[in-house]
Write a protein that binds this DNA or RNA. Structure first.
Lengths: 217, 217, 217, 217
DNA sequence: GATGAATGAGACTTCATTCAT
DNA sequence: AATGAATGAAGTCTCATTCAT
């Protein structure tokens, strides 16, 4: 059996095991057994538990980012771009729940280089969302259909993006919950769009919540 | 020194250590040393590492829920109630970052009873938010100020609540980031209100996003 | 059982095992079993295999140097001082063959800090011998009993000292050989004195070997 | 490439690696890589780590003994024979420091058959030196140039030989020290001759050191 | 109430060695 | 003749946990 295949098998097993049991609780014995190979072979190919973990993180992060990029409909209007990206995100995390848990939960437990890669990936996504929101605001202002100023500040865009990504992660967790009852990828994306798109519209009309107004505008 | 005090010291040390290093990497030696007592005493009071961890989770979860409950202004209008709860949440997590990390990050790493307690706490918060949103919709319909039907389905409310809680957690993490740049509790709560309250308003007016409309309404 | 006693027992076992099997072949399991304690206790007290080895080297080196110092008769004439030192050396190495093997054979196998300590000890002994030889030459010159110049150069003294120490080590090995047949400490010391003292006398008379003279002077 | 050449390359690599890192620390991977061949080939030719080590010892021991034999000027007088042998020894060890370290340091670390081969080689050298000394005594007695009895006992000759070999080894180590400052082969041989030859002369004159005489005769 | 002393179990990692090709 | 692929066995080290005092 060629090396590259074996290596992917090992990574598959490692992702599963790390995701389900956490870094420290996942033993190299477990992983090797899952992969159907002997422990020394894992070391021969992947050198150490740390490097194995890092390889898992890298593979899953790259896979997720690639899935999102592939899902985005580049020539569509801004809202459609945002929706397609979100849909790609939810579809991918639903199909690879272990990978998502690895990135979202386990990688943060580990200080140092591992968490940094996840932070970088997350930053990339936040950046993508921020740009999508800003682009939407610009497009909207240009076609003149909004009644307000069409302006949102950079800080507001960042805050919105953070909140949106967090909300997406939360929904992904709900969606990935094996207990069932969670939404499908389409539903999750639509929920977020309902949530975010109208919120963005309100902001662009200059509406802000303040503790003085007690009814939703 | 009375037993109750010693026990709290141990829990303090354990929360810090578990939050910073994770369950498996935190050794009982470390915790005992942090607490300034000998290891057998920790065992005398808290019986095992698992029970110690569970006690930490319980204390921090109860503390967070209590803080939110105390912050809610019960007699205020719905939006104010929601805002005050969010503000209580952000204020507490900002003041007890270790406790928050313990609940949000570490407890999920552990299968079994630990994660369940956190899930329960989270469910409690989601429930609170769902009720706040539903109440807001009812109040709003009653006072007749909305142009729409004032109806949101239960599923929509749940989805919104999930998204809101996830967004709040994401913002809390940003806010708690020692690298700085994150928002204050007030800013975070306001961002979420801007995000959620206007979105809720739109929903109540019957506006939904669909892939056919490309500009925020 | 108090800690200090246990620690010495561990060091005893470690010296034996390291000396007989070499650093790498001596397993911590072996040593712990020899010492009659569990392996974790060895780690609790001595931290690592390296530190354990270093502690052995230090103890044995200090013990040997102390034995030589104690044996030297400080107020005696130079030759008697040299003899008493040599005798102390041979007596100690004969009584602690494992310690001697540890210093002479095993410590050199290991690069880095271990060998350096042995090199330092050896340098100390060489220095002692060099001074004894120089002092003997001075005394001898003062009392006028020598027919020659009474001069030996520093380089010659160093070379002699190196050779003498090497010869002593070789004889110690012979003496320590369990196969028997080796000399007693007294015999070994006397052999070296016959070897060195008369050689020194010849040198002081200005006699040097050269390839032209074929008979011992 | 013919087998014999490959085999020598492997032995070269093995000698270097064993000498620099010790038996246990030298891995077959290292050696194979050094030799520029694959590991199974090493096993095909040399069967096991132990046999490889033994082959190294044998080759280096034979090489050293051969160098000494070749250096001895058989028809010269006794002192010249001894000197030429010593010179050959120092020249060879200086030229093949790894081989010398292998024999002098590493082989002793290993119990069993390895050390025995080195012991045998050493015994051969000691025997050669003993015979050279005895022959010198006989020649000297025959030509009548000595004032004493010309007699030394067999035990004295053996002790002298042991001391001489040990001194030579010590000087070889000094000479081989990469830190420099050590003597050249010529200087080392001359130092030993000064040391030994005059000492032998004294012995043959019947002079012995005893604790009663405090000045070199 | 409190602790110094001690250990069984298990983790990561390395390495000599062998097949199938 | 030569090697890529693979593993059983063993070693160092850590840690939760318990007594005797």
């Amino acid at each position: 059996m060629p090396r590259a295949v074996r290596e992917q098998q090992m990574l598959d097993a490692a992702v599963r095991t790390f995701a389900r049991r956490g870094y420290r609780n996942a033993s190299m014995d477990d992983i090797a057994e899952q992969a159907g190979v002997s422990k020394p072979l894992v070391y021969l190919y992947l050198h150490s538990k740390d490097e194995l973990f890092a390889a898992c993180i890298r593979r899953e992060a790259a896979s997720l980012v690639a899935a999102i990029r592939a899902a985005v409909e580049h020539d569509a209007p801004a809202d459609r771009r945002l929706w397609s990206g979100l849909h790609g995100f939810f579809a991918h995390t639903a199909e690879h729940p272990d990978g998502w848990v690895l990135l979202h939960v386990q990688a943060r437990t580990h200080g140092g280089p591992f968490a940094l890669e996840v932070v970088a990936m997350r930053a990339e996504i936040v950046e993508f969302v921020t740009q999508a929101l800003t682009a939407a605001a610009r497009e909207n202002a240009r076609c003149g259909s909004a009644r307000g100023t069409g302006r949102i500040t950079g800080g507001e865009a960042s805050g919105l993006a953070y909140a949106l990504v967090g909300a997406a992660e939360s929904l992904a967790e709900w969606a990935g919950d094996p207990a069932g009852g969670g939404p499908s990828a389409e539903e999750a994306a639509a929920t977020l769009m309902n949530f975010a798109w109208t919120g963005l519209g309100s902001l662009m009309r200059g509406e802000r919540w303040s503790s003085g107004e007690h009814t939703p505008a």
